[in-house]
């Protein structure tokens, strides 16, 4: 798999090389480190937000280094603002590159979203209109990221609460075209699909049937909250603050039945529970992965 092969050896490797974990993993929270190291049953991998490890030194980097000795690390950027109209922040990209060099992550991913406008960083994944002009700049930004890092990037589908008037194509057409032009891989967030489908009234099953699954190298699962929109209809919030919903588990099962075992992350970022609770979610994903261990559709397993 393109996106999960070991990094090019620009310097002698001093970190263990792991095979692609066709298992579940968890979003790493520093408060879980003791429990993780004491746990005799290992998860497949840990994923971290790149930005939280961009300090100069100290405990965060030491903790990540400790974790990296035992586990594959997936590096997930949340602030590159790939969908933004301004140029990429070169300093930020350079910091990202230092992390890739230092920790040799198994997977590097980012979002189809923007988070910076002018000089303000909003710390949220804000939506992009699906137009040809936006497509062009997203392609330009991903090219720059992949060229700078020397790595294939996985792009994650967003969860959205609004749509725009002047869209020139659908989300899947947009994502498919970005992948075609940049050669990037895809990170399929099944909860995001369910959240957006509910919020905008489309069928998540149809979305997944159209989605270019052959480019998917990682899956995200998370819990969402339910609010009401302007007309009193359900408005789902991608809150990552509770267990994965039964609807999302069902969709995930369908995806894995088609795609075969794929690294799957459980995200839990607000009201973070103790490690055992998060681990139980990862176990639930593993049960589905194991049930479909032999289901890999040969046409969908793209070669590297």
């Amino acid at each position: 798999m393109r996106a999960t092969r070991p990094p090019q050896a620009v310097q002698p490797l001093r970190l263990p090389i792991f095979p692609t974990p066709l298992k579940s993993g968890a979003g790493f929270k520093p408060e879980h480190l003791d429990a993780i190291l004491a746990d005799s049953r290992k998860v497949g991998f840990f994923e971290v937000h790149a930005e939280n490890y961009m300090g100069e030194g100290g405990a965060p980097l030491a903790m990540l280094e400790r974790l990296r000795a035992d586990y594959p690390i997936f590096l997930h950027g949340v602030a590159m603002s790939i969908g933004g109209e301004g140029p990429l922040d070169r300093e930020h990209l350079a910091r990202f590159k230092r992390l890739v060099r230092r920790y040799e992550p198994q997977v590097v991913s980012e979002h189809l979203a923007w988070s910076t406008h002018d000089t303000a960083f909003y710390n949220d994944l804000l939506p992009v209109p699906y137009t040809r002009a936006v497509l062009k700049r997203v392609v330009r930004h991903i090219d720059e990221v992949q060229h700078t890092l020397g790595r294939t990037l996985l792009l994650e589908n967003p969860s959205t609460y609004v749509t725009f008037n002047d869209c020139e194509m659908g989300e899947i057409e947009f994502i498919r075209e970005v992948a075609r032009r940049t050669g990037c891989g895809l990170l399929l967030d099944v909860n995001n699909v369910f959240v957006s489908a509910t919020n905008h009234g489309f069928s998540p099953e149809s979305y997944l049937a159209d989605f270019p699954l052959h480019l998917v190298c990682e899956i995200h699962l998370a819990g969402h909250a339910t609010e009401a929109d302007d007309e009193g209809k359900p408005l789902l919030i991608d809150a990552h603050d509770r267990p994965v919903s039964s609807e999302v588990w069902a969709l995930y099962g369908q995806v894995i039945a088609t795609l075969g075992p794929t690294p799957t992350l459980i995200e839990w970022d607000n009201d973070v529970p103790e490690w055992a609770v998060l681990k139980a979610e990862a176990d639930a994903a593993d049960a589905i992965l194991a049930a479909h261990a032999t289901d890999a559709h040969p046409d969908l397993r793209h070669a590297g």
Binding site: N52, H111, S159, I237, A239, H240, D269, N270
Partner: peptide, 9 residues
Amino acid sequence: AGTTCAGTS
């Protein structure tokens, strides 16, 4: 403080 890729309820 850390970054977030989640919304809030």
